Lab assay of single mutants.
Amino acid sequence: TRVETATETAWISLVTALHLVLGLSAVLGLLLLRWQFPAHYRRLRHALW
């Protein structure tokens, strides 16, 4: 049971790290898009909202 718990903890930390990385890359990508294509971003936002 001790090994299982350790594996579970490792998986949880791995998944958390993955989610953090994905979230950060998504935010960075959005910022980059907004910085590179302001007109396109505004049009996209206008279409979405």
Rank of each mutant, 00 (worst) to 15 (best):
H40W: 08
W11P: 04
T7L: 10
T9V: 12
L30V: 09
L32D: 04
E4Q: 08
L20D: 00
F37T: 04
S13F: 14
P38L: 09
L31C: 15
V27K: 03
L30F: 14
I12N: 06
G23Q: 04
T9Q: 14
P38Y: 10
L22N: 02
A26E: 01
L33R: 02
R2N: 08
R45N: 00
P38K: 14
T16L: 14
R42K: 14
T1H: 14
W11T: 07
G23F: 14
H46I: 06
Q36P: 03
V3N: 05
T1S: 11
L44G: 03
S25N: 08
T9H: 15
W35A: 15
A39E: 13
L44M: 08
W11Y: 13
P38I: 10
R43K: 11
H19N: 04
L24M: 15
T1C: 12
G23Y: 06
R2S: 12
H46L: 09
P38F: 08
V15W: 07
T5S: 01
R45G: 04
E8Y: 05
L32N: 02
E8A: 05
G23K: 01
T5G: 00
A6W: 07
V15N: 05
T9C: 06
Y41F: 13
A10L: 07
V15I: 12
V21G: 05
F37C: 08
G29K: 03
R43L: 07
L28S: 04
T16N: 04
T16K: 03
L24Q: 12
A17L: 11
S25I: 06
A26L: 14
V27Q: 03
R45C: 06
W11R: 04
A47F: 08
F37G: 02
S13R: 13
V15Y: 04
L14D: 05
T5I: 06
Q36K: 11
R43Q: 08
T16S: 14
G29H: 00
R43S: 08
T9I: 14
V21K: 01
R34T: 07
W49G: 02
E4K: 09
L24V: 15
R34F: 03
R34K: 15
A6N: 10
L24F: 13
L32G: 01
Q36Y: 15
S25W: 06
L24G: 10
L20H: 00
A10M: 10
L32C: 04
A10R: 11
R45M: 05
T7N: 11
A26C: 14
E8P: 12
P38W: 07
S25G: 06
A10Y: 07
V21C: 10
H19L: 02
